[in-house]
Design a protein around this nucleic acid. Sequence first.
DNA 1: CGGCAAAATAGAACACGTTTCACTTCTAGT
DNA 2: ACTAGAAGTGAAACGTGTTCTATTTTGCCG
Lengths: 192, 192
Amino acid sequence: MDDRARRIVETAVALAERDGYQAVRLRDVAATAQVALGTVYKRFASKEEILIAALEQESEKLVAKIGKKPVPGDGSRERVHFVFSALTKGLLRRPNLAKALVRSLASGDPNITERVASFHALITAMVMAAIRGEAASEQAEWGGDVDERERTIASILQNVWFASFVGWAGGLHEGSQLLSDIDKTTELLLTD
Amino acid sequence: MDDRARRIVETAVALAERDGYQAVRLRDVAATAQVALGTVYKRFASKEEILIAALEQESEKLVAKIGKKPVPGDGSRERVHFVFSALTKGLLRRPNLAKALVRSLASGDPNITERVASFHALITAMVMAAIRGEAASEQAEWGGDVDERERTIASILQNVWFASFVGWAGGLHEGSQLLSDIDKTTELLLTD
DNA sequence: CGGCAAAATAGAACACGTTTCACTTCTAGT
DNA sequence: ACTAGAAGTGAAACGTGTTCTATTTTGCCG
């Protein structure tokens, strides 16, 4: 990503953070990033793609921070709680941005499918690491055998979290529900 | 819902079914429904609201059909599989319409929060009925005590299904994954 | 019937995502 | 330094959701 692209994403994040999705007006993004509208479209195919780039950036930042050290906690439940708590807090700290990002994530735009898949994979990997009690970064080295049961559980947890995230973004419930949904699920799925 | 409103929703469904969300152009909807654009906006506050009305209609139709007789199957797993299978098939039969409806469901529009909540509640009720082996319609009469554990499991299943639905709409995977996600989850959550 | 308030209509107007275009500025290679 | 092609720019233009307005039609009440 070159300098201009970085400025564009940065600006989009700032605008979304302040006033949400609709405030990310591409004419404003261009002006604030000191770039022509045509340049925005040379870098990104659409508004959604800018926001997905922002999501990539934010989630990688968060996951890197979370995965730096081995996840603390004696039991898998505690560790899973920890990573989802960190992820959720990190995202909901800027609620308008978070809502804008979910919107892109759930937009159904076929042009971003791969990046959406990457996001899901990132979370799933992090959750699997938490279940096992490893640092998330180890999973890259590990290579081979992944327990099928653990993968299934991680994927269920991720789906529950994601659905709850979308629900929060749509005003269905408070942010705290994300974690309580996760806790209820781990109570049924993980024995520690 | 009066006659014009019905025609509007009907037309929106037809257009979405043929060519998806972007094909539901409100000028076209108005013209086809033989109504002025202003009339569309007197009935519905936005395009999202028309599609949510369509979702309400379609999902009520489906759930009514599914909930008519007691859910077949000896075990709760089998029954849960049955209702999600019916729901999923009923929706994915018209994939473009289904994608358009998910998009509204996941749009995050605060003006439709209540109707989104109703949709989720409808599904959850249906799933709870399936777990217990009742006809879904009985749940209205039952009134009182709902087992907390069952409610939690139903809500997890619904979240998993919904997340998978959104994933399908975004091109992440085939429709068949919806059911296999549900099956994997019930294997871990229900003992029959 | 005659008239009036409510609803519907046609169509203009506006905002914003997206596309296009004619022109200018950079940059790499000689 | 010169030049060709790439990249950037500013501005116009288009599509579609949404709003607004002036006019017409409808349905009802006396």
